[in-house]
Amino acid sequence: MLIPHPLLGPRDAQEFTYLGDARLIDRPDGMAEGAGAAFHDYLYLRDNPAGPHRELWYHEHGDRSWLVVTRDTTTHEILGAELVKGPGR
């Protein structure tokens, strides 16, 4: 596979490490009321869509950016990739 790195252009997937669902970015506040339930959902309730899926890839053998890559799980088509740490975050 080729990952379209937003800064470096297409790079072979061998340079990357895969993590999973991009929802992992939205970590609950551990000090908030009901944190236990929130973390349960955060850790264990994942969608497994047949179709576009936002997922996390790490450019481990490149610039060490974490990316959110939108990939169609039925075709492996990549619909977009952005830095996890971008404007507005």
């Binding site: 470096l8 252009g9 790079r11 072979d12 061998q14 340079e15 053998h61 490149g62 610039d63």
Partner: peptide, 17 residues
């Protein structure tokens, strides 16, 4: 290395496998 030649023209620098 698995990089297109344009990624390594003079002046370019990149990390790869």
């Amino acid at each position: 290395v698995n990089l297109p030649p344009e990624a390594l023209t003079p002046g370019k620098a990149t990390r790869t496998l």
